[in-house]
Amino acid sequence: MEQKTMSIELREGSGKGVARKLRAQGVVPGVVYGKGIDPVSVKVAAKDLAAAIAGEGGVNSLITLAGGGSLSGSTVIVADMQRNPLRGDFLHVDFLRVSLDEKVKVHVPVVAVGTCAGVKEGGMLEVVTYSLDVECLPAAIPEAINVDVTNLAIGHTIHVSGLVLPAGVKVLNDPETPVVSIHGKAKEEAPAAE
Rank of each mutant, 00 (worst) to 15 (best):
K47F: 07
D48E: 15
L49G: 09
L49M: 13
A50S: 15
A50M: 12
A51I: 03
I53P: 01
I53K: 06
I53R: 08
A54Y: 02
A54L: 04
A54Q: 07
G55L: 05
G55P: 02
E56I: 03
G57H: 07
G57V: 05
G58Q: 11
G58P: 02
G58W: 04
V59I: 14
V59L: 15
V59A: 10
V59Q: 13
V59S: 09
V59Y: 07
N60D: 08
S61M: 05
S61R: 11
L62T: 03
L62H: 02
L62Y: 01
I63M: 07
I63K: 08
I63E: 06
I63D: 04
T64V: 10
T64A: 14
A66C: 03
A66K: 14
A66E: 14
G67A: 07
G67M: 09
G67K: 08
G68I: 06
G69P: 02
G73V: 07
V76F: 01
V76T: 03
I77L: 13
I77D: 04
V78P: 08
A79R: 15
D80R: 14
M81S: 09
M81V: 13
Q82V: 10
Q82G: 09
Q82T: 08
N84E: 14
P85Y: 05
P85S: 12
P85F: 06
P85D: 12
L86Y: 11
L86W: 09
L86V: 10
L86D: 11
R87C: 03
R87M: 10
R87P: 00
G88C: 12
D89S: 10
L91N: 10
L91Q: 15
L91A: 12
F95L: 14
R97P: 00
R97A: 11
V98M: 06
S99C: 01
S99L: 04
L100F: 01
L100S: 02
L100T: 01
L100E: 04
D101G: 00
D101T: 03
D101W: 00
E102R: 04
E102A: 05
K103I: 00
V104S: 03
V104F: 01
K105W: 00
V106T: 07
V106K: 09
H107S: 15
H107I: 08
V108T: 06
P109H: 11
P109K: 14
V110N: 09
V110W: 05
V111Y: 06
V111D: 07
A112Q: 06
V113Q: 13
V113C: 02
G114P: 01
G114Y: 01
G114C: 04
T115D: 14
T115W: 02
T115E: 15
T115N: 13
C116H: 01
C116P: 10
C116Y: 00
A117N: 08
A117I: 07
A117W: 01
G118F: 04
V119S: 12
K120Q: 11
K120N: 06
K120L: 13
E121K: 15
G122P: 02
G122W: 05
G123F: 02
G123I: 04
L125T: 02
L125M: 11
E126S: 12
E126G: 03
E126N: 13
V128Q: 13
V128H: 07
